[in-house]
Structures are given as C-alpha cells and as structure tokens.
Design a binder for these strands. Structure first.
Length: 157
DNA sequence: GCCAACGTTGGC
DNA sequence: GCCAACGTTGGC
C-alpha cells in the first residue's frame, strides 16, 4: 500500500465536488512523473490526502482513497476534452488515471503554510513543502501521512 | 495579477 | 545532446 497526496484546483474540482459525486475518474494528469506514479504504484484502497491548489488558501482539505486500478485516460483521445492529447494513440496509451473515492472532509483545512512549518521536521523531503514543486500526484511515507492527519485534531495555528 | 520554477519542445 | 524559447503551475 502507498499513501498519496493528490492536488486539485477547487475552482475546477474541489473536495465538495468529490463529496457530491462519491467517486470520480482522476483524469487529466499530463506529467510523466505523476503518470508513472499513478500507473505503477497505485492500488485499490490506497489512502489519499486531497489538496486544494492554485487558490486563496492552499490546504489539505479531505481524505479519499484509490478506488480502481490504473487504466488509460480516455480524455487523452477525446478531441473535445480540455485534456486532449493530439499525439494520443489508443493502441499505445500514454496517460493513465485511477478512480478516487471520497471518504471525508478533514475537521479543519491544514494549510500549506502550516505544513511548511514542519518542512525541516516531520515533513522533511515531502515534495509539497518544497519551493517550486509542481507534482500533482505524490507519495508520502506512512509516517508523513499519519503526522498530517494528526494535525487535524490539534488547534489551528 | 505577478512572477519564479519547472517541464516540454524544437532548432541546431 | 545542448539549450533557448515557450507554456504551465501554483504560491503569493
């Protein structure tokens, strides 16, 4: 089992959208490093921290889980999709997705600012707290995952 | 809105 | 294979 953090822009698809839909194909990943992680390391039941990026208050806001095996991302072959890949070839899929299922909102958002206060400690090495990081799907160690979830029930800083 | 950081593309 | 140009991400 691998523990994950998935980024999403709340203006496009936020935790409330996932809660409303129950489960959703995590399409549109178009970065090779993220693709390799999705394709090679995800398994049904893996826990996922749901992170809101590119917004006023970047934060981890919910808990989800991987709900399918990886499979080719059909939006790559759809000319009408914003994620269409002109070089996409169904015979040799380049991009993959998994389904993600909502579990719950966190008791409070754990902001990037708060997470960064642990960048030299419990969260050392976590890509999310490194400057300039653009990876939208990243693995965490079980210890990092547990540490972040434990913050939820501490008072907001 | 700004801009730094990053990944990708393509000329050479 | 190098690297400049470009487009995108994402914090602030």
């Amino acid at each position: 089992m691998t523990h994950w953090l998935f980024k999403s822009e709340p203006g496009v698809f936020g935790i409330d959208d996932l809660a409303a839909r129950g489960a959703e194909p995590w399409d549109g990943v178009r970065n090779y490093q993220a693709r390799n992680l999705l394709r090679d390391r995800t398994a049904v039941g893996d826990p996922v921290l749901f992170y809101h990026s590119n917004c006023a208050r970047p934060a981890i806001v919910g808990l989800a889980e991987v709900a399918s095996s990886p499979r080719p991302d059909p939006t790559a072959f759809d000319p009408d999709s914003p994620h269409h890949d002109p070089k996409g070839d169904p015979a040799a899929p380049r991009w993959y997705l998994v389904d993600v299922r909502y579990r719950r909102h966190l008791a409070r958002p754990i902001t990037l600012a708060e997470l960064k206060t642990h960048a030299e400690g419990a969260l050392a090495g976590l890509a999310l707290v490194r400057r300039g990081n653009r990876l939208s799907v990243m693995p965490l160690s079980p210890a990092q995952f547990d540490f972040i979830l434990a913050l939820e029930h501490r008072p907001a800083p």
